[in-house]
Simulated scan of single mutants.
Amino acid sequence: MTAGFRDLADWTHTSPKQLVALHLTKSPNTERGYREDLGAFTAWMGNRTADQAVRELLESGRAAAKRLLVSWVNRMRSDKLSASTIRRRAASIRSLISTAGDPDIEIIGWQIGRLPNLPPAARVRDCTGPGRDDVMRMFVACRQRDDAIGRRNEAILSLLYYHALRAAEVLSIRLQDVDMDEPAIRICAKRGAGRMSLRLCQRTAAAVDRWLKDRGDDEERDAPLFSRCARWGGKALPQPLSYWGLLAMVRDVGETAGIRCWPHALRHAAITHVSARTHGSPAWGMALSRHRDVRAWMGYQDVQVSHVSAAEILSRDQIVSSEPDSADN
Rank of each mutant, 00 (worst) to 15 (best):
T85S: 14
R231E: 11
R6E: 04
G33R: 13
V253D: 03
P240H: 05
H264G: 09
S98N: 13
R277E: 14
V305T: 12
M180V: 09
A168K: 08
I313F: 04
S60C: 04
R6C: 02
D79H: 11
S309H: 15
E106F: 00
A184C: 09
Q111P: 05
K235W: 11
V73N: 12
N74L: 11
D217C: 09
S322R: 15
G129K: 06
L22W: 09
G33V: 11
S227D: 12
I112L: 15
L81S: 00
M76Y: 03
V170Y: 01
A3W: 01
L241V: 06
A167M: 08
I93P: 05
V320G: 12
R67A: 14
D179Y: 08
A207E: 02
A287E: 07
S84K: 14
L115I: 14
R132A: 08
W262D: 07
I97S: 03
V178K: 13
E154P: 04
G216D: 07
C127N: 15
A63G: 06
M76N: 08
P130S: 00
R203Q: 15
R67C: 10
E182R: 14
E154D: 09
R62V: 07
I271C: 07
S84L: 05
A296V: 09
P238E: 11
D179G: 08
G233H: 01
L198N: 03
S92H: 09
A9H: 01
A193F: 01
V170F: 01
W262S: 08
L19N: 00
P119H: 06
I105V: 10
Q111G: 15
I156Y: 00
N329L: 12
E36D: 13
A236T: 13
A310F: 12
Y300R: 11
Q304I: 12
R277S: 13
E169T: 05
I271H: 02
L38G: 02
C261A: 13
A230W: 05
V253Y: 03
L160W: 09
G245V: 07
N117E: 08
S315P: 02
Q304K: 13
W110E: 11
H13Y: 03
T12Q: 10
A3P: 00
R87E: 01
R186Q: 15
M76P: 00
A83P: 05
S326F: 13
R290I: 04
L81N: 06
L96K: 04
A236R: 15
V253Q: 01
Y162S: 02
D293L: 01
Y161D: 08
P116G: 02
L38H: 04
S322T: 15
G299A: 06
R145D: 10
I173T: 08
L237I: 15
D177S: 02
M286H: 02
R87Y: 00
D325Y: 06
F226N: 08
